[in-house]
Simulated assay, not measured.
Amino acid sequence: MNSVFKRIVSSVAIALASVGIAQAEAPKEIRLDYAYYSPPSLVLKRFGWLEQDLKTENIPVKWVLSAGSNRALEYLNSGSVDFGSTAGLAAVLSKANGNPIKGVYIFSRPEWTALVVPKDSPIKSIKDLKGKKVAATKGTDPFLFLLRSLHAEGLKKTDIEHVALQHADGRAALEQGKVDAWVGLDPLMAASEVEAGSKLIYRNVAYNTYGFLNVTEKFAKDHPDHVKKVIAAYEKARKWIIANPDETARIVSEEAKLALPVAKLQLTRNDFRNPVPGEEHVKAFKSAASILVEEELVKKGTDVNKVIDDLIEPSFAKAVVR
Protein backbone atom coordinates (compact mmCIF):
# COMPACT_ATOMS: atom_id res chain seq x y z
CA MET A 1 0.00 0.00 0.00
CA ASN A 2 2.83 2.30 0.91
CA SER A 3 4.58 1.70 -2.42
CA VAL A 4 1.33 2.30 -4.31
CA PHE A 5 0.83 5.54 -2.44
CA LYS A 6 4.36 6.61 -3.29
CA ARG A 7 3.78 5.87 -6.97
CA ILE A 8 0.59 7.95 -6.94
CA VAL A 9 2.36 10.86 -5.26
CA SER A 10 5.20 10.57 -7.74
CA SER A 11 2.78 10.58 -10.69
CA VAL A 12 0.97 13.63 -9.34
CA ALA A 13 4.29 15.42 -8.81
CA ILE A 14 5.34 14.69 -12.38
CA ALA A 15 1.99 15.90 -13.69
CA LEU A 16 2.22 19.09 -11.65
CA ALA A 17 5.77 19.65 -12.83
CA SER A 18 4.63 19.24 -16.43
CA VAL A 19 1.88 21.78 -15.91
CA GLY A 20 4.39 24.13 -14.32
CA ILE A 21 6.69 23.81 -17.34
CA ALA A 22 3.83 24.45 -19.72
CA GLN A 23 2.82 27.51 -17.77
CA ALA A 24 6.41 28.76 -17.74
CA GLU A 25 6.54 28.47 -21.55
CA ALA A 26 3.50 30.70 -22.08
CA PRO A 27 4.26 34.43 -22.32
CA LYS A 28 2.67 36.73 -19.74
CA GLU A 29 1.53 38.97 -22.59
CA ILE A 30 2.19 39.40 -26.31
CA ARG A 31 3.26 42.85 -27.46
CA LEU A 32 2.86 43.78 -31.11
CA ASP A 33 3.19 46.97 -33.06
CA TYR A 34 0.65 48.29 -35.49
CA ALA A 35 1.56 50.64 -38.31
CA TYR A 36 -0.33 52.67 -40.88
CA TYR A 37 1.98 51.20 -43.55
CA SER A 38 0.87 47.68 -42.52
CA PRO A 39 -2.83 47.20 -43.37
CA PRO A 40 -2.91 43.66 -41.87
CA SER A 41 -1.85 45.01 -38.48
CA LEU A 42 -4.72 47.53 -38.59
CA VAL A 43 -7.28 44.87 -39.53
CA LEU A 44 -5.99 42.50 -36.85
CA LYS A 45 -6.09 45.22 -34.21
CA ARG A 46 -9.59 46.32 -35.25
CA PHE A 47 -11.18 42.86 -35.04
CA GLY A 48 -9.26 41.53 -32.04
CA TRP A 49 -8.76 38.10 -33.54
CA LEU A 50 -5.49 37.47 -31.72
CA GLU A 51 -7.07 38.47 -28.41
CA GLN A 52 -9.84 35.95 -29.07
CA ASP A 53 -7.33 33.19 -29.90
CA LEU A 54 -5.40 33.80 -26.69
CA LYS A 55 -8.42 34.23 -24.41
CA THR A 56 -8.41 30.62 -23.18
CA GLU A 57 -4.76 31.02 -22.13
CA ASN A 58 -5.46 34.33 -20.37
CA ILE A 59 -2.67 36.00 -22.36
CA PRO A 60 -3.33 39.72 -22.93
CA VAL A 61 -2.29 41.51 -26.13
CA LYS A 62 -0.64 44.92 -26.08
CA TRP A 63 -0.54 47.11 -29.21
CA VAL A 64 2.12 49.80 -29.78
CA LEU A 65 2.07 52.28 -32.69
CA SER A 66 5.16 52.32 -34.93
CA ALA A 67 5.63 55.52 -36.96
CA GLY A 68 8.24 53.88 -39.20
CA SER A 69 10.62 50.93 -39.51
CA ASN A 70 13.16 52.78 -37.41
CA ARG A 71 10.71 53.05 -34.51
CA ALA A 72 9.61 49.42 -34.80
CA LEU A 73 13.23 48.29 -34.77
CA GLU A 74 14.01 50.46 -31.76
CA TYR A 75 11.08 48.87 -29.90
CA LEU A 76 12.30 45.38 -30.80
CA ASN A 77 15.86 46.15 -29.76
CA SER A 78 14.80 47.64 -26.43
CA GLY A 79 12.40 44.79 -25.65
CA SER A 80 9.35 47.09 -25.77
CA VAL A 81 7.59 44.80 -28.27
CA ASP A 82 7.90 41.15 -29.24
CA PHE A 83 6.79 41.66 -32.85
CA GLY A 84 7.54 44.64 -35.08
CA SER A 85 6.55 45.60 -38.65
CA THR A 86 9.37 46.88 -40.84
CA ALA A 87 10.75 47.07 -44.33
CA GLY A 88 12.93 44.08 -45.06
CA LEU A 89 16.17 45.91 -45.86
CA ALA A 90 15.74 48.09 -42.78
CA ALA A 91 15.54 44.87 -40.74
CA VAL A 92 18.75 43.64 -42.40
CA LEU A 93 20.52 46.88 -41.49
CA SER A 94 19.30 46.73 -37.91
CA LYS A 95 20.28 43.08 -37.46
CA ALA A 96 23.70 43.77 -38.98
CA ASN A 97 24.18 46.36 -36.27
CA GLY A 98 23.30 43.98 -33.46
CA ASN A 99 19.49 43.84 -33.19
CA PRO A 100 18.63 40.17 -32.37
CA ILE A 101 15.57 39.61 -34.58
CA LYS A 102 14.09 37.09 -36.99
CA GLY A 103 11.94 37.91 -40.03
CA VAL A 104 9.14 35.35 -39.81
CA TYR A 105 6.29 36.61 -42.03
CA ILE A 106 5.63 38.92 -45.00
CA PHE A 107 2.67 41.18 -44.30
CA SER A 108 2.73 42.64 -47.83
CA ARG A 109 4.83 43.25 -50.93
CA PRO A 110 4.42 47.03 -51.14
CA GLU A 111 5.43 49.87 -53.35
CA TRP A 112 5.26 52.21 -50.40
CA THR A 113 8.06 54.62 -51.21
CA ALA A 114 9.02 56.86 -54.13
CA LEU A 115 10.63 60.22 -54.77
CA VAL A 116 8.06 62.95 -54.15
CA VAL A 117 8.21 66.64 -55.14
CA PRO A 118 5.70 69.51 -54.90
CA LYS A 119 3.20 69.85 -57.75
CA ASP A 120 5.02 72.83 -59.29
CA SER A 121 8.57 71.56 -58.78
CA PRO A 122 11.11 71.81 -61.61
CA ILE A 123 12.77 68.60 -60.41
CA LYS A 124 12.13 65.86 -62.95
CA SER A 125 14.62 63.11 -62.13
CA ILE A 126 17.07 61.72 -59.58
CA LYS A 127 19.91 63.62 -61.25
CA ASP A 128 18.10 66.87 -60.57
CA LEU A 129 18.49 66.26 -56.83
CA LYS A 130 22.15 67.32 -56.87
CA GLY A 131 22.61 70.15 -54.38
CA LYS A 132 18.97 69.94 -53.23
CA LYS A 133 17.43 69.37 -49.81
CA VAL A 134 15.88 65.89 -49.62
CA ALA A 135 13.96 64.59 -46.60
CA ALA A 136 14.05 60.91 -45.65
CA THR A 137 13.87 58.97 -42.39
CA LYS A 138 17.12 57.23 -41.49
CA GLY A 139 17.00 53.47 -41.01
CA THR A 140 13.91 53.01 -43.19
CA ASP A 141 13.07 51.81 -46.70
CA PRO A 142 12.67 55.40 -48.01
CA PHE A 143 16.19 56.29 -46.84
CA LEU A 144 17.67 53.16 -48.43
CA PHE A 145 15.56 53.78 -51.56
CA LEU A 146 17.14 57.24 -51.77
CA LEU A 147 20.68 55.91 -51.44
CA ARG A 148 20.15 53.18 -54.03
CA SER A 149 18.52 55.61 -56.46
CA LEU A 150 21.39 58.09 -56.10
CA HIS A 151 24.00 55.38 -56.63
CA ALA A 152 22.21 54.14 -59.76
CA GLU A 153 22.64 57.64 -61.25
CA GLY A 154 26.28 57.97 -60.19
CA LEU A 155 25.50 60.24 -57.24
CA LYS A 156 26.34 59.93 -53.54
CA LYS A 157 24.61 61.04 -50.37
CA THR A 158 27.10 63.91 -50.16
CA ASP A 159 25.78 65.23 -53.49
CA ILE A 160 22.51 66.19 -51.78
CA GLU A 161 21.60 67.81 -48.48
CA HIS A 162 19.90 65.00 -46.62
CA VAL A 163 17.36 66.24 -44.07
CA ALA A 164 16.65 63.53 -41.49
CA LEU A 165 12.97 63.78 -40.56
CA GLN A 166 10.38 61.25 -39.41
CA HIS A 167 7.96 60.41 -42.24
CA ALA A 168 5.11 62.74 -41.20
CA ASP A 169 7.53 65.62 -40.68
CA GLY A 170 9.04 64.96 -44.10
CA ARG A 171 5.65 65.31 -45.72
CA ALA A 172 5.01 68.56 -43.87
CA ALA A 173 8.42 69.94 -44.84
CA LEU A 174 7.78 69.13 -48.50
CA GLU A 175 4.36 70.76 -48.58
CA GLN A 176 5.65 73.82 -46.69
CA GLY A 177 8.55 74.28 -49.11
CA LYS A 178 11.23 73.59 -46.50
CA VAL A 179 12.76 70.80 -48.59
CA ASP A 180 12.97 70.30 -52.35
CA ALA A 181 12.02 66.63 -52.31
CA TRP A 182 10.92 63.90 -49.96
CA VAL A 183 11.27 60.16 -50.18
CA GLY A 184 7.84 59.36 -48.85
CA LEU A 185 6.07 56.48 -47.19
CA ASP A 186 2.49 55.38 -47.68
CA PRO A 187 -0.11 56.28 -46.58
CA LEU A 188 1.46 59.73 -46.03
CA MET A 189 2.78 59.70 -49.60
CA ALA A 190 -0.65 58.87 -50.99
CA ALA A 191 -2.19 61.61 -48.82
CA SER A 192 0.26 64.17 -50.18
CA GLU A 193 -0.62 63.13 -53.73
CA VAL A 194 -4.37 63.35 -53.18
CA GLU A 195 -4.51 66.38 -50.87
CA ALA A 196 -1.57 68.54 -51.98
CA GLY A 197 -1.07 67.47 -55.60
CA SER A 198 2.45 66.25 -54.89
CA LYS A 199 4.06 64.27 -57.71
CA LEU A 200 5.88 60.94 -57.67
CA ILE A 201 8.67 61.63 -60.16
CA TYR A 202 10.71 58.48 -59.59
CA ARG A 203 9.27 55.06 -58.79
CA ASN A 204 11.08 51.73 -58.66
CA VAL A 205 9.26 48.83 -57.07
CA ALA A 206 12.50 46.81 -57.00
CA TYR A 207 13.91 49.34 -54.52
CA ASN A 208 10.91 48.85 -52.22
CA THR A 209 11.72 45.95 -49.90
CA TYR A 210 9.12 43.65 -48.46
CA GLY A 211 6.96 44.29 -45.42
CA PHE A 212 8.40 42.00 -42.75
CA LEU A 213 6.92 40.97 -39.45
CA ASN A 214 9.92 40.50 -37.18
CA VAL A 215 10.12 38.83 -33.78
CA THR A 216 12.85 39.02 -31.17
CA GLU A 217 15.11 35.98 -31.14
CA LYS A 218 14.38 35.48 -27.45
CA PHE A 219 10.61 35.34 -27.97
CA ALA A 220 11.02 32.98 -30.94
CA LYS A 221 13.21 30.66 -28.86
CA ASP A 222 11.09 30.77 -25.71
CA HIS A 223 7.62 30.74 -27.30
CA PRO A 224 7.69 29.12 -30.76
CA ASP A 225 4.05 28.02 -30.57
CA HIS A 226 2.95 31.58 -29.87
CA VAL A 227 4.95 32.87 -32.83
CA LYS A 228 2.81 30.53 -34.92
CA LYS A 229 -0.36 31.81 -33.25
CA VAL A 230 0.54 35.40 -34.11
CA ILE A 231 1.26 34.40 -37.71
CA ALA A 232 -2.03 32.49 -37.86
CA ALA A 233 -3.85 35.67 -36.80
CA TYR A 234 -1.97 37.67 -39.45
CA GLU A 235 -2.94 35.03 -41.99
CA LYS A 236 -6.58 35.51 -41.08
CA ALA A 237 -6.18 39.25 -41.60
CA ARG A 238 -4.34 38.81 -44.91
CA LYS A 239 -7.02 36.54 -46.37
CA TRP A 240 -9.76 38.87 -45.11
CA ILE A 241 -8.06 41.84 -46.82
CA ILE A 242 -7.90 40.02 -50.14
CA ALA A 243 -11.61 39.15 -49.87
CA ASN A 244 -12.71 42.58 -48.58
CA PRO A 245 -10.72 45.39 -50.26
CA ASP A 246 -13.34 48.12 -49.78
CA GLU A 247 -13.85 47.34 -46.10
CA THR A 248 -10.07 47.21 -45.66
CA ALA A 249 -9.77 50.69 -47.15
CA ARG A 250 -12.38 51.95 -44.70
CA ILE A 251 -10.50 50.47 -41.74
CA VAL A 252 -7.18 51.95 -42.89
CA SER A 253 -8.91 55.28 -43.42
CA GLU A 254 -10.39 55.28 -39.93
CA GLU A 255 -7.34 53.95 -38.08
CA ALA A 256 -4.88 56.29 -39.79
CA LYS A 257 -7.38 59.18 -39.89
CA LEU A 258 -7.06 59.52 -43.65
CA ALA A 259 -9.54 60.32 -46.39
CA LEU A 260 -10.98 57.18 -47.94
CA PRO A 261 -9.49 57.91 -51.43
CA VAL A 262 -6.05 58.05 -49.81
CA ALA A 263 -6.49 54.65 -48.18
CA LYS A 264 -7.72 53.18 -51.47
CA LEU A 265 -4.69 54.56 -53.30
CA GLN A 266 -2.37 53.11 -50.67
CA LEU A 267 -3.93 49.66 -51.00
CA THR A 268 -3.46 49.62 -54.79
CA ARG A 269 0.27 49.64 -54.07
CA ASN A 270 0.23 46.51 -51.88
CA ASP A 271 0.44 42.87 -52.93
CA PHE A 272 -0.75 40.47 -50.22
CA ARG A 273 -0.26 37.20 -52.09
CA ASN A 274 3.04 35.74 -50.82
CA PRO A 275 3.37 35.75 -47.01
CA VAL A 276 6.15 33.17 -46.55
CA PRO A 277 9.71 34.52 -46.34
CA GLY A 278 12.12 32.62 -48.52
CA GLU A 279 14.69 32.56 -51.30
CA GLU A 280 13.00 35.40 -53.20
CA HIS A 281 13.67 37.72 -50.28
CA VAL A 282 17.18 36.43 -49.65
CA LYS A 283 18.12 37.19 -53.27
CA ALA A 284 16.51 40.64 -53.21
CA PHE A 285 18.34 41.63 -50.03
CA LYS A 286 21.70 40.27 -51.16
CA SER A 287 21.45 42.23 -54.38
CA ALA A 288 20.91 45.38 -52.29
CA ALA A 289 23.45 44.58 -49.56
CA SER A 290 26.29 46.48 -51.23
CA ILE A 291 24.61 49.82 -50.47
CA LEU A 292 24.86 49.13 -46.74
CA VAL A 293 28.60 48.53 -47.04
CA GLU A 294 29.35 51.33 -49.52
CA GLU A 295 27.55 53.92 -47.39
CA GLU A 296 29.24 52.56 -44.25
CA LEU A 297 25.88 51.90 -42.61
CA VAL A 298 27.25 48.68 -41.12
CA LYS A 299 30.49 48.04 -39.24
CA LYS A 300 33.52 47.37 -41.38
CA GLY A 301 33.99 43.65 -41.98
CA THR A 302 30.33 42.77 -41.46
CA ASP A 303 29.28 39.74 -43.53
CA VAL A 304 25.95 41.14 -44.69
CA ASN A 305 25.05 38.02 -46.66
CA LYS A 306 25.38 35.95 -43.49
CA VAL A 307 23.22 38.48 -41.64
CA ILE A 308 20.53 38.09 -44.31
CA ASP A 309 20.62 34.29 -44.09
CA ASP A 310 20.28 34.52 -40.33
CA LEU A 311 17.46 37.07 -40.43
CA ILE A 312 15.05 35.24 -42.71
CA GLU A 313 13.29 32.41 -40.86
CA PRO A 314 10.54 30.73 -42.92
CA SER A 315 9.80 27.75 -40.67
CA PHE A 316 7.09 29.40 -38.57
CA ALA A 317 5.13 30.67 -41.58
CA LYS A 318 5.53 27.37 -43.44
CA ALA A 319 3.92 25.61 -40.49
CA VAL A 320 0.90 27.92 -40.60
CA VAL A 321 0.27 29.21 -44.13
CA ARG A 322 -2.00 27.02 -46.25
Rank of each mutant, 00 (worst) to 15 (best):
K62N: 15
G139C: 12
E153G: 12
F5M: 11
R250N: 07
I251A: 07
I251R: 00
G197T: 02
E111V: 10
K283G: 07
K318E: 15
S69K: 13
D53G: 04
G184L: 09
S38Q: 10
K264E: 14
V215F: 01
R273K: 15
Q23F: 15
H281I: 13
V64L: 10
G103I: 10
A173D: 09
L76T: 05
V134M: 00
S287A: 14
P245E: 06
A114W: 04
F5P: 00
N77W: 11
N270I: 10
V282T: 02
E175V: 14
A152I: 08
S66C: 07
S287W: 00
Q266N: 14
A232H: 09
N2C: 12
G154C: 02
V104D: 07
S11E: 14
D159T: 05
V262Q: 08
T86S: 11
A196P: 02
V43Y: 00
N2P: 13
V117E: 03
K6V: 13
I106V: 09
F143L: 06
I231T: 06
P245A: 10
L200N: 04
D222Q: 15
K257P: 14
I21P: 01
W112Q: 08
L44S: 04
S38M: 13
F145K: 03
F285W: 01
A90Q: 03
V4C: 13
N70V: 11
D225V: 04
I312H: 06
G84M: 10
D120L: 10
E195R: 04
A259T: 12
A35D: 11
L42D: 07
V81P: 03
L265E: 05
P275E: 00
D141S: 15
T216D: 06
A135N: 08
L32A: 02
L311N: 10
R322V: 11
Y207C: 05
E217A: 13
R46F: 03
I106C: 04
L165F: 00
A237N: 10
Y202V: 07
H162Y: 05
F219A: 03
L200I: 08
V61I: 06
K130R: 15
L42Q: 10
A206Y: 03
P40T: 08
I8D: 12
T113P: 05
Q52Y: 11
G131D: 14
S94T: 10
L93S: 03
A26I: 14
G197I: 09
I231E: 05
V320C: 02
L297H: 02
R273C: 12
I14A: 11
P118Y: 08
F219S: 04
G20A: 15
L292M: 08
I126Y: 00
W182M: 07
I59D: 00
V205D: 12
L188E: 00
V194L: 01
K221D: 15
W182S: 06
F285D: 03
D159G: 09
T56I: 14
E25W: 15
S198P: 07
W49F: 06
R31V: 06
Y207K: 12
S11P: 03
V293F: 07
I251V: 14
K6D: 13
S78R: 14
D225C: 13
I123C: 07
A256V: 02
N2Y: 14
K300T: 14
P314R: 01
L65F: 12
P275I: 10
P261K: 08
A263G: 06
K257I: 15
